[in-house]
Amino acid sequence: MNDIAFKRHRRLRSSASMRALVRENYLRADDFIYPMFVIEGEGIKNEVPSMPGVYQVSLDLLLDEVKEVYDLGIKAIMFFGVITAKDEIGTGAYIDDGIVQKATRLVKKEFPDLLIVADTCLCEYTSHGHCGVIHENDVDNDESLKLLAKTAVSQAKAGADIIAPSNMMDGFVAVIRHALDEAGFTHIPIMSYAVKYASAFYGPFRDAADSAPQFGDRKTYQMDPSNRLEALREAQSDIEEGADFIMVKPALSFLDIIRDVRNHVQTPVVAYNVSGEYAMVKAAAQNGWIDEKSVVLEMLTSMKRAGADIILTYFAKDVAKWLKEEN
């Protein structure tokens, strides 16, 4: 066949060592942010039924959970609060002794070099489950911004290293940046949920955080999954307003959007591998339909290949353990 011209691509796949030599994308524990649900009470470690291996943990048990994450080499965690006493304006989000504020102070004291990312939203704390103040059966954008700014400052005072607003109100980055600067937190970066779609993949999270909307949906402030160019407009405006990171959520169904964003921005890009994506893999693995490790590594690598610098994922501990075993 020497007279037929064709390429010998298999030369670079001939052995495990050869494949490793030319590999373009790697997963590392440093790539991950691990989400954690902190619940009021004592002695509580509730496994989320739709998210095997993910727990709601009370403050008295939190340090043991965080130590496991820390010892695996994961450098960042994100806190979500789970409370019972909710109200119309989400007071629990921004009071100084809120559950996330308490968790932040506790963990920073014991693990000062662990990055704490604070989810900055109201939905976990409002009685109606929406991400802002309700006025005439709709979320009032500008009134909500005032409370989101208070939440961000409260979280920064508690010791949060990164503020991550997820509410999708217009102008949320600008208002939060201004509030942080006015309060003396000019050094605290903002990880904007800039490109957050109104996705069907959030169901298990809403069980874990008890944050499902009590009426209607979030389609007036989260993005239409059919839209692509809108993502670039959202990302660009947030950068102009002061965002230091740009997040795309969800990740798996929006790999094209991650690549688009990566091609258009110079800030770090974060992919949120959301609860529904996690739950699907766990369910299939428990039924013996897939090899969980292989699928998870392939899935998360696809997010890195698409352009994500950082991955927020409930698989962080599992992958960190697998990577340690390989080394």
Rank of each mutant, 00 (worst) to 15 (best):
204 P>D: 05
232 L>P: 00
235 A>W: 04
117 V>I: 13
81 G>C: 05
298 E>T: 11
142 D>H: 12
66 V>D: 00
9 H>F: 09
301 T>Q: 02
304 K>P: 02
201 F>N: 01
233 R>P: 01
103 A>R: 07
148 L>N: 10
144 S>H: 06
301 T>A: 02
194 A>R: 01
88 E>Q: 15
256 D>C: 06
35 P>D: 13
232 L>Q: 08
310 I>V: 15
209 A>M: 05
37 F>H: 05
20 A>W: 02
255 L>D: 12
102 K>F: 04
76 A>K: 03
86 K>C: 09
137 N>H: 14
304 K>T: 06
294 S>M: 13
315 F>Y: 14
60 D>A: 08
125 Y>F: 15
300 L>N: 01
317 K>F: 09
132 G>E: 12
199 S>H: 08
76 A>Y: 03
320 A>T: 07
17 S>I: 12
32 F>N: 04
285 A>H: 03
324 K>G: 00
214 Q>H: 14
110 E>H: 06
306 A>V: 05
139 V>N: 04
116 I>D: 01
25 N>V: 07
19 R>T: 10
270 V>Q: 05
93 A>Q: 12
65 E>I: 03
223 M>F: 07
319 V>S: 02
182 E>S: 13
187 H>N: 15
233 R>W: 10
291 D>L: 08
183 A>G: 08
310 I>Y: 06
46 N>Q: 10
96 D>V: 02
216 G>T: 09
73 G>T: 09
48 V>R: 02
253 S>G: 08
93 A>G: 15
268 P>C: 10
22 V>M: 11
28 R>W: 00
118 A>T: 09
157 K>C: 11
318 D>I: 06
193 Y>A: 11
272 Y>R: 05
181 D>Y: 02
147 L>P: 08
44 I>G: 10
107 V>H: 03
25 N>K: 05
175 V>P: 01
275 S>H: 09
287 N>G: 14
12 L>F: 09
73 G>N: 01
102 K>M: 15
239 I>N: 13
197 Y>E: 03
267 T>P: 00
135 H>L: 13
100 V>I: 15
61 L>F: 05
57 V>L: 09
50 S>R: 03
29 A>D: 02
145 L>Y: 08
176 I>Y: 08
65 E>S: 12
